[in-house]
């Protein structure tokens, strides 16, 4: 009778108790780690924000055009603050993952492992998008200024197209890096790009025959005397 009690009632209860204590300690460990992450993250954010402000990081971002791009996304915070927030996010995320690891269950281990495998791709995609935004802005502005100086009436449209194409390329590359709909996106992009180029070529050939003629003439034939309205020497 005693053995029965021992094996069927008390032992499972002890086991349950042991597991509860283990789980509880893991849970407490996780909570402590997360709490620590939140505190350290907040501190890091504040320190980074203040240091970057002293180092005039916002001005650098404005100069690079990053500030304007961020503003365009509807984010009103300064680049220094955002950089602090990014660091805070990374620290909190790391603490969360450490906490999950502390749980010592199979699915949390798998989750953490998969996260770390995916992280480089994610970071690469973010980098591609940032570089893409900067390059599209630079090339867009180059095209805008060149087109205005050349007196092209559709200068803004041209600049917008340049920005759009560069950004599209960057998004496609970023999605490809993330492995999201890889084939579909590349095929869609190729179809869209090829279609647009073909459409533009046909439109230019048919609709702007005169313009094409004039452009080629201007490019390869010396200007006639009548065309030289300005004989001004600027220097």
């Amino acid at each position: 009778m005693n053995q029965f009690w021992e094996q069927t009632i008390l032992e499972p209860l002890r086991e349950l108790g042991r597991q509860a204590v283990t789980s509880l300690s893991s849970l407490v460990g996780m909570l402590v780690l997360i709490l620590l992450g939140l505190v350290v993250g907040w501190l890091a954010k504040e320190v980074i924000y203040r240091v970057l402000r002293v180092l005039r990081f916002d001005r650098l971002c404005d100069r690079l055009g990053l500030g304007t791009e961020i503003e365009r996304l509807g984010i009103t915070r300064s680049c220094s603050y955002l950089a602090g927030q990014v660091v805070q996010g990374i620290i909190v995320l790391t603490a969360l993952l450490a906490g999950l690891t502390a749980m010592r269950t199979q699915w949390t281990q798998n989750l953490v492992e998969r996260f770390f495998l995916y992280l480089p791709h994610f970071l690469a995609a973010v980098l591609i998008l940032i570089v893409g935004a900067l390059v599209s802005r630079f090339l867009g502005r180059s095209a805008l200024i060149a087109a205005v100086n050349a007196g092209m009436p559709s200068a803004r449209l041209l600049a917008g197209l340049v920005r759009f194409f560069v950004m599209t390329l960057a998004v496609v590359a970023a999605l490809d890096e993330l492995g999201i709909g890889r084939t579909t996106i590349i095929v869609a992009f190729a179809i869209m790009f090829g279609g647009l180029v073909t459409a533009a070529a046909i439109a230019f050939g048919l609709g702007a025959k005169e313009l094409a003629h004039d452009l080629l003439n201007a490019q390869f034939r010396p200007p006639s005397r009548d065309a030289e309205k300005d004989t001004i020497q600027h220097l």
């Binding site: 805008l144 200024i145 087109a147 205005v148 007196g151 009436p153 309205k229 300005d230 004989t231 001004i232």
Partner: peptide, 23 residues
């Protein structure tokens, strides 16, 4: 003598003020 194309210059100025405003 130096000839000068005023309408072209004015058009360039107007377009600059309009299109290069963000710059």
């Amino acid at each position: 003598p130096v000839s000068i194309d005023l309408p072209r210059m004015l058009a360039a100025f107007s377009q600059g003020c309009r299109d290069l405003r963000p710059v």
